[in-house]
Computed example of a mutant assay.
Amino acid sequence: MSTSDKRLFAKFTLDFPTNPKIAGLSDAAFRALVEAVCYSRQHLTDGFIPSAVARKMWGDAVLAELRTNHPDRPSLTEDDGGFRIHDYASHQLTAADIRSLQERGRKGGQAKAEARRLAPASDRPELRVGNGTASALQSQESEMTMASFPESSHYPTARDATDGIDAMTARLAGQQGITDLGAVISAADSHVDRRLDASGALRLSLHILGKAASTPTNALPYVLRSIERSPAEVQQFIDKELIAL
């Protein structure tokens, strides 16, 4: 799996289709079980599927098949208000697992920011988002072209990160001079260890632009450079606003 692929994944062993209790399922039941795992992974329900969702997506006959495909360990069991996937936590990441990984990422980002803060003055960027040195940053970004960042190897995942950005969000961003939200997403991922979606990238960009001493000439390079030079402040905003995925 590419490290630049930010989609969520569910895990299935190679012998999953030939497992005795799976091999005998109808095509509809097999598809329903896979979709149930993907649903739970996406919505972090730890293997629980609400009854209304399950019945609408797969119907009673398929659900009955998945509840009876093994005498002791059927693929689905009825739970309060829905159905639960058997042994889900043994194979998939749970909500607790995700929170633990996010906390590790948060601490890692804090450690990086602290290391930068303690670095010798000659190695430490002097610019901070929204402080008195913003004008110096603007003078630097005014010399950059808008094309210098999105296609740069400095943000190699910018094009991949653009996938799935809706037209409305892209249009709102473009009106503010943020012509490539994918580049903002990649910059946050690279320098702050935070994963954003398009909406979060737009909110972060507007926050950075709003703190500038005056309107930057080239908005996108200004935002990208601000993220790179002020990761601690950017991380604080992302965590405070709960916009990280």
Rank of each mutant, 00 (worst) to 15 (best):
M1N: 02
S2D: 09
D5Y: 01
D5M: 12
L8C: 02
L8I: 08
L8W: 10
F9E: 06
K11I: 11
T13D: 08
T18N: 12
T18R: 08
N19W: 03
P20Y: 03
I22S: 03
I22N: 01
A23P: 00
A23E: 04
G24C: 05
G24R: 04
G24I: 01
R31H: 04
A32G: 08
L33Q: 14
E35G: 04
V37G: 00
Y39L: 14
R41K: 15
H43A: 00
D46I: 06
A52I: 04
V53Q: 15
R55A: 10
D60S: 13
A64I: 01
A64K: 02
P74K: 11
S75E: 14
T77D: 13
E78C: 05
E78W: 04
D79M: 05
D79T: 14
D80T: 09
I85N: 03
H86F: 11
D87K: 13
D87T: 00
Y88R: 13
A89S: 13
A89Y: 13
L93K: 09
A95V: 09
A96L: 06
A96S: 01
R99S: 08
S100P: 03
Q102K: 08
Q102G: 09
E103M: 03
E103D: 03
K107V: 15
G109L: 11
K112Y: 07
A113K: 11
A115Y: 07
R117P: 09
A119P: 02
P120V: 07
A121T: 09
V129G: 03
N131D: 15
G132L: 14
T133G: 02
S135M: 06
S135F: 03
A136S: 06
L137T: 04
L137Y: 07
Q140V: 14
E141K: 02
E141P: 01
E143R: 07
T145Q: 14
T145G: 11
M146S: 12
E151N: 12
A161T: 08
A161P: 01
I165Q: 03
A170E: 09
A170Y: 04
R171Y: 00
G177R: 00
G177S: 07
I178M: 09
D180F: 03
S186P: 01
S190C: 09
H191T: 05
L204P: 02
A212M: 10
S214E: 08
S214C: 13
P216Y: 10
P216Q: 08
L220C: 11
Y222H: 15
S226K: 00
S226H: 10
E228F: 15
R229L: 15
A232F: 13
E233Y: 02
Q236N: 10
I238S: 15
D239A: 12
E241T: 11
A244Y: 07
L245D: 07
